[in-house]
Simulated scan of single mutants.
Amino acid sequence: MLEILQPGLYTSIQDLGRFNYRNYGVPVSGVMDEYHAKLANHILGNHENDAVLEITLQGPHVYFHEATQIVICGADLSPKLNRSDLRANIPINVSKGDELTFGARNYGIRTYLAVKNGFQTEKILESCSFYDGITQKSRIEKGDSIPYQTIKKQQLSNAKIGFHPTVFNDNQLQVFKGPEFDFLSKKQQKLLLEIPFSIGLNNRMAYQLNELLENNFPSIITSAVLPGTIQLTPSGKLIILMKDCQTTGGYPRILQLDEASINRLSQKHTRDKIYFNMISTS
């Protein structure tokens, strides 16, 4: 059992999400950065869809009631086990009574804590992912207990993942044309793919961009949207939908991020700049 002594800023249980209920209006949810969540599970020999803790900006303080193995992958939030610095991207043996804490953010904003065989939390609609209205809560709280399987015979792996933090500094996002892209003028299309955009308000549902793009679109019928869909609002603001986004929307869908760029964007902070690069389909 993992006891939450302090929850951090926004910490939640996530797996890869819910994929069979969009026709009922249920969002996909799931980890924001699939690459690092899958990496953490793979290092431990878990299934890639095993539940992990997604930790945002400020990490929790947790107490391990049973022995296990853990891995932390993603943003560097200065993890410590019993006040000793903890290496990322490598299996770590944890004993009963150990405490995990986090400190200053060095790069990225989301990191993933995986345990051997995954956190054993309730599945609702085939997923453990927290989402307000589907699960009882949207984030963990002080005093919560999160079950995991006890690992009595622990082994340390000599394997480690080569990693360089420059991956978190990449500000190029790869995009496809959205269904309404051709409604833009040639000038608008050119601006969209040349100027830098800066990140404004953001959360698991969407990232808003600060710069405006003129919107002279006709009204469109409410249509399907996905994580990574980039919408243009009537005010000219761009909104990039993320993992907790709705299943339909009424704003023009001018671009669509690829999966790797969703991962990359999920590690960006307010005021970070990004560029859109069109993926050729020819």
Rank of each mutant, 00 (worst) to 15 (best):
Y207K: 11
N158I: 14
E3N: 07
G236R: 13
L201D: 05
D33S: 09
I151Q: 09
G200C: 03
T248A: 13
F163Q: 09
T121S: 10
N89E: 11
G103R: 03
L39V: 13
Q188N: 11
N210P: 12
N23V: 12
L212F: 02
I55W: 06
S157T: 08
D50K: 04
Q246T: 10
N158V: 13
S145M: 11
Q188W: 11
S29P: 06
S129N: 06
L57E: 09
A260E: 15
S223R: 01
R271K: 09
S29E: 01
Y112L: 06
A67V: 01
F163D: 05
S280Q: 03
S95G: 07
Y107F: 15
L57A: 12
K152H: 12
Q58V: 10
F197Y: 11
T248V: 15
F181Y: 14
R253E: 14
I4P: 06
S198A: 11
S78Q: 05
D76K: 13
R204D: 01
V225I: 13
Q58E: 08
A40I: 04
G74H: 11
S185G: 14
L100V: 02
L226D: 13
K160M: 11
V175M: 12
K116G: 06
A37S: 12
A206H: 01
F276H: 09
L39I: 14
I151D: 12
N210W: 06
D50Y: 02
L100E: 00
H36R: 09
G228I: 01
I124M: 09
D144V: 06
N106G: 08
A114G: 05
G133I: 10
L39N: 11
S157G: 02
I124H: 02
K187R: 11
L191D: 10
G25P: 02
M32Q: 15
K243I: 01
L53T: 05
I274A: 04
G178A: 05
N169D: 12
I195W: 07
P165N: 05
Y148G: 00
E122K: 12
K137A: 07
I90Y: 03
L86A: 08
G108P: 03
I92T: 02
S223H: 07
A104G: 10
T56V: 02
L44G: 00
S198F: 15
P234W: 02
G8L: 04
G200E: 03
P196M: 13
S282H: 14
T222Y: 12
S266F: 03
R253G: 07
I13A: 02
M242G: 06
L201Q: 06
A51R: 00
L113E: 03
K237Q: 11
L5E: 04
Y275W: 14
G133E: 01
L39Y: 07
E126P: 00
S138Y: 07
K273C: 12
F19D: 14
P227A: 10
A51D: 08
